[in-house]
Design a protein around this nucleic acid. Structure first.
Lengths: 346, 346
DNA sequence: TGAAAAAATGAAAGCGCTTACATTCGAATT
DNA sequence: AATTCGAATGTAAGCGCTTTCATTTTTTCA
């Protein structure tokens, strides 16, 4: 094993320049804007680069260029697959533009998210992808002050000035609730994520209420139970909901993970789904099709969101073009096996 | 909205120093080694920091300090939850040491992984977490040359010099196979990830063969089918395996995701599990308990691995202590509902 | 009380890169 | 053949921070 140099430090731009017998500026150009360098010089430099195994120092580059070609994303959780697909698409698209993705997760904790935002910005993220609108205004001020283009995904509100790429959570849940009510259900349960710090959860609940109202039902027809996203919590919430409100014939869930938990508990309680009770989800993650019976849910355009978000940010960073309007994508009702008309007897 | 300064640039160390009326060295110390600064000065500086909303520039810091307090991890996939729990524990533990985690995924593609490694190193990762041993030796040379401490997780081989923290895949699968064979199964199917570039997959297959041999069965008793990890692939592989080898009474899967696919297909084919056919998984991800019937599988110590890996790297980086030996953790057999004795008739 | 030791602070030299600006040089234009 | 111009290259000034070393201030204790 031939050791090239005894000192441990890595080759620098200057080393390459020396070996290739050109100035450091020329080496830098070769790497960043090859078209500005003559063919012969370029070859010389590239050879030196290879011989030395040179690779540019990120910190130095960021410091000098004031750009990192990195965008950060902070998602609430990596635990279940809710955001995986969208994020993957986001990354793929970013790569097309020569940018790298940095991911962090906040565990649905606002303070943690704030921390992560600061970290990513400090690390030089040129732009940020965030999930949902809800966060302290001071964060938005911070971002603006730092000049960090930001896109908010997984949500869309026509009247919100922040650039968002997502779907109308309220309308989506309303569609679902229309189906549920249309089938004859009159007493509904709703298992939601905590609404206080989660605009998407709030919107979804509102959507359910919209449907209720449209069908002439009053708010009493909907019993809401809040809990954090997890299968276990979904199961517990379902049990509570049903024991306290035995008249409920359909339980709508704020996402598929909760719904899977509810489904599991229903079986455990000896309830047949959908004969004895209907359950609906939201997101359409893979789990939804694995569950037995397969979950009736709303399909969310994960990959599209990711792709569009990446394009938007690339546009803003590279072309300094501000796209005119936030983008609303469509969710689609996804009928499977957990929603049916309530038993006549009930 | 009061605009503090018209020029867009962020406050720097120098700005803080000026405002606090101290030297930039003192400000730096306040931030990095507060105990070296007098109380009064420290307060003055901290006030200035807050007033300016100062946050240090990562690139500059990395450049000057030659450390980033960042460790990178490259996992094969984020798509399913296989690595999520372990990674989360890894991050939590890193945070304890004041370090940040950077995650990338390779999609099980060696070239992509290589790329990601280069990227993370270029970004200044002080250390790396990689999954499994298998990769081109040139990569290990590269890492060594760059002086990047690396730990390999999700695997453990006593005779391998690379520092690993994981479990003995071979022994684990052997345990499982012992159970299967012990119940009386004599014709086994095995759905594995492609073995060529995946030492863990190879080891698991070897474990199955070990068990076979120990029970005096020959290699013909095991039919192997390779496919990439995904539910769909698991389902397809199961169908192929059974149609070509109807005498098989138990299908062991290289991981839970494949097993879930197999389970799904079994039902679709009208086979009862475990009465008509047994299916086993590996990993014990949440999905395994959701599946119906719940999957019999091997539990892998995800969180422990993550935690220990973080500690090891922190030791190496912070204390420059090289831990003596790789760490072997235990897997545990996890009996649920998909494994039973074969039908007597068969 | 004064000398020595310890603690606190400052001055300044980089870290490795990009880029504005200056320079050189060959080709094109007249 | 002289002039102009543009392409190719070099020079050097930072980018914002850490850290060594020197200097000043405070503390300690004989």
């Amino acid at each position: 094993m031939p050791l090239r140099n005894t000192d441990t430090s890595l080759p620098t731009l200057a080393d390459v320049a020396r070996l290739a017998d050109v100035s450091s500026a020329t080496v830098s150009r070769c790497l960043n804007a090859p078209e500005k360098v003559g063919q012969a010089t370029r070859d010389k430099v590239m050879n030196a680069v290879n011989e030395l195994g040179y690779s540019p120092n990120f910190g130095a580059r960021a410091l000098a260029a004031k750009r990192t070609n990195t965008v950060g994303a902070i998602i609430p959780t990596m635990d279940n697959a809710i955001f995986a697909r969208g994020l993957q698409a986001f990354e793929e698209e970013l790569n097309r533009f020569g940018m790298t993705l940095l991911v962090a997760s906040s565990n649905y904790l606002p303070e943690r998210e704030e921390e992560q935002i600061k970290t990513l910005v400090a690390r030089g993220a040129d732009a940020l992808l965030l999930i949902g609108y809800d966060r302290d205004p001071s964060i938005y001020r911070f971002l603006e002050r730092q000049g960090i283009p930001t896109v908010v995904a997984w949500t869309y509100q026509a009247d919100n000035p922040l650039h968002s790429i997502g779907f109308d959570n309220r309308a989506a849940l309303r569609t679902m609730a229309d189906h549920v009510i249309g089938l004859g259900h009159r007493q509904l349960g709703f298992i939601s994520a905590p609404q206080a710090t989660n605009d998407r959860a709030r919107e979804r609940v509102l959507g359910a209420k919209d449907a209720l109202e449209a069908h002439g039902l009053n708010a009493n027809a909907l019993t809401i139970c809040e809990t954090n996203y997890s299968i276990l919590n979904g199961a517990d919430a379902f049990a509570t909901l049903l024991s306290e409100n035995p008249e409920i014939t359909a339980v709508m869930c704020g996402n598929d993970v909760l719904a899977i938990g509810a489904l599991k508990m229903a079986k455990k309680m000896g309830l047949r789904v959908p004969e004895d009770i209907s359950i609906t989800g939201f997101d359409d993650i893979e789990l939804a099709t694995i569950a037995e019976p397969a979950l009736t849910t709303m399909h969310v355009p994960h990959r599209q969101m990711g792709r569009h978000a990446a394009r938007y940010l690339a546009d803003v960073i590279l072309l300094k073009t501000q796209l005119p309007r936030p983008l609303a994508l469509e969710t689609v009702y996804c009928e499977r096996e957990t929603l049916a008309a309530p038993r006549a007897s009930k």
